[in-house]
Amino acid sequence: MSTPTFALPRQLKAFNLYFDGNSYAGRCDSITLPKIALTTEDHRAGGMDAPKKLELGMEALTASITLSDYDPAIISLIGVDGIALVARGAVQRQGAAAEAVVVNMRGMLTETEFSEWKPGGKSTKTLTYELDYFRYRQVDVEYVEIDIINMVRKIGGVDQLATQRAAIGL
């Protein structure tokens, strides 16, 4: 009888955020990466006993960031498109070396929510970005690349839109 093997989960241990190449170490409280979700529609035609979901593209990519810094350079980016964001994380399984995670994003700052002001209290602001580009790499392997403007959707190394681009001459 063999002994079962198991591994403890990788957990995010540390991260840093870069706006246009500038480090926000010590000033970024949290980052919520975008949800990657497909838009689907039910299809049920003659000869089908139940509906089948048809994939019709993707939902919008939205990221949010909470900063503990009232940096005027960030506040002035509201409505500016093409802002480059890079999140770098260290994920680690107990007893193993840390693995690098690099997330590249590009988009427009569409919303800034300032926190309550009160003396002696921490003040933050939450930034919402509508993204047109998202790439997730872990240990130098690209797992996701979505480039909305150039009609690229690579998941697990497969470009799911390559034949569509070819069909329309892109």
Rank of each mutant, 00 (worst) to 15 (best):
P4L: 09
T5Q: 15
A14P: 04
F15I: 04
L17Q: 05
L17H: 04
Y18R: 08
N22A: 14
R27T: 12
D29C: 15
T32C: 08
K35A: 13
I36K: 02
T39P: 11
H43K: 14
G46Q: 10
D49C: 08
K53L: 12
L54H: 11
A63D: 04
A63S: 07
S64T: 15
L67H: 00
A73T: 12
S76R: 13
S76E: 13
G79Y: 02
L85Q: 01
A87R: 05
Q94K: 12
A96P: 05
A97Q: 03
A97S: 10
A97D: 06
A98D: 01
V101G: 04
N104S: 11
M105K: 02
R106E: 04
G107W: 00
M108E: 08
L109R: 02
F114P: 08
F114K: 12
S115Y: 06
G120F: 04
S123Q: 13
K125G: 14
T126I: 10
T126G: 00
Y129D: 04
L131Q: 00
R135N: 04
R135H: 09
D140E: 10
D140K: 06
V141I: 13
I148G: 10
N150Q: 01
D159P: 04
L161R: 06
A162C: 05
T163G: 04
A166P: 07
L170A: 14
